[in-house]
């Protein structure tokens, strides 16, 4: 009885690993393929038999071409810059608004909150035309401003932070008022430190979304110098050097790596952050 039980246990465990290894392979294959190709010379890529590791290591050359033929580093730098600017702006706008919605009583509060909820419904792509026209009028197209400004408001951020601020007991805020803190000091000294994990989660959400976004940069900018990573790799592909698969894959590795490395370093934070923000 016991042995049959443990036999079934063992079989179950093997089946679990078999299936999960298969699905994991499906998830990881493109990454393996990408890295593998990025290390190979052209003739090996077109060879009939496939090897994971190149017989003639061509990695140095491929990555050198990727980095020199296209401004890869400036793509990454632009990504960092644009994502940081967007997130900073969003915090600046969202935090006071979310605090007022969560903890202050004022006429029009419910109306404003309904407006935020309606705003949540609007897919950003639907606003592309008017945003494009507006930026065109102001002459901002093809500048950093064009990449950043349309994202300055995040109804999602307001909604999310309001939920977190609401979970802080009113008594804490009352105590702070009695202790002599003004409302903006309460935000700075009490609310922000107390909701730091939530802010980090929102940050991860925001940065991942904008680092990977292709739709808007494709509309807003043309110049390679200010392209974000997602657009940059596309520009590289349509470039001369991008016609060679080795350097193209090397470029893809460079574009994809920073976020994936950040993820691997702080896995829990990323997974929980993204899960928490979407579940709210």
């Amino acid at each position: 009885m016991i042995s049959r039980f443990s036999d079934r246990r063992f079989a179950g465990r093997v089946a679990r690993h078999a299936i999960l290894l298969l699905t994991a392979a499906f998830a990881l294959l493109p990454f393996v393929w990408m890295v593998s190709l990025s290390l190979k010379p052209p003739q090996e890529i077109f060879q009939a038999d496939f090897r994971l590791w190149p017989t003639a290591f061509h990695g140095g050359e491929n990555y050198r071409i990727a980095l020199t033929a296209a401004p890869m580093f400036s793509f990454l730098l632009n990504g960092v810059l644009v994502c940081a600017a967007i997130f900073a702006l969003q915090l600046l706008v969202c935090i006071p608004c979310a605090y007022a919605l969560a903890k202050l009583r004022f006429r029009g509060r419910d109306t404003l909150f309904s407006a935020v909820l309606v705003g949540l419904l609007l897919p950003p792509q639907a606003l592309a035309i008017p945003h494009f026209v507006m930026l065109n009028v102001f002459g901002f197209l093809d500048t950093y401003a064009a990449l950043i400004l349309p994202w300055a408001i995040s109804t999602f951020g307001i909604f999310l932070l309001r939920q977190f601020f609401r979970s802080i007991p009113d008594e804490i805020i009352h105590a702070a008022r009695l202790d002599g803190l003004g409302e903006f000091e309460i935000i700075w000294r009490i609310m922000i430190p107390m909701t730091a994990p939530a802010l980090a989660a929102f940050g991860i959400f925001s940065v991942v979304a904008h680092w990977n976004d292709l739709f808007w940069p494709l509309i807003a900018v043309r110049r390679a110098e200010i392209s974000t990573p997602a657009l940059g790799i596309l520009l590289f592909r349509d470039d001369e050097a991008g016609q060679f698969l080795g350097p193209l894959m090397a470029g893809a590795v460079i574009i994809v790596a920073p976020l994936l490395l950040a993820f691997l370093i702080a896995q829990r934070r990323f997974i929980d952050g993204l899960a928490v923000t979407t579940m709210k």
Partner: peptide, 15 residues
Amino acid sequence: HFLPVMSTMSAMAIV
């Protein structure tokens, strides 16, 4: 399994 979620789609689409 989570890695694809984080990856830049335009680059991975090329791959």
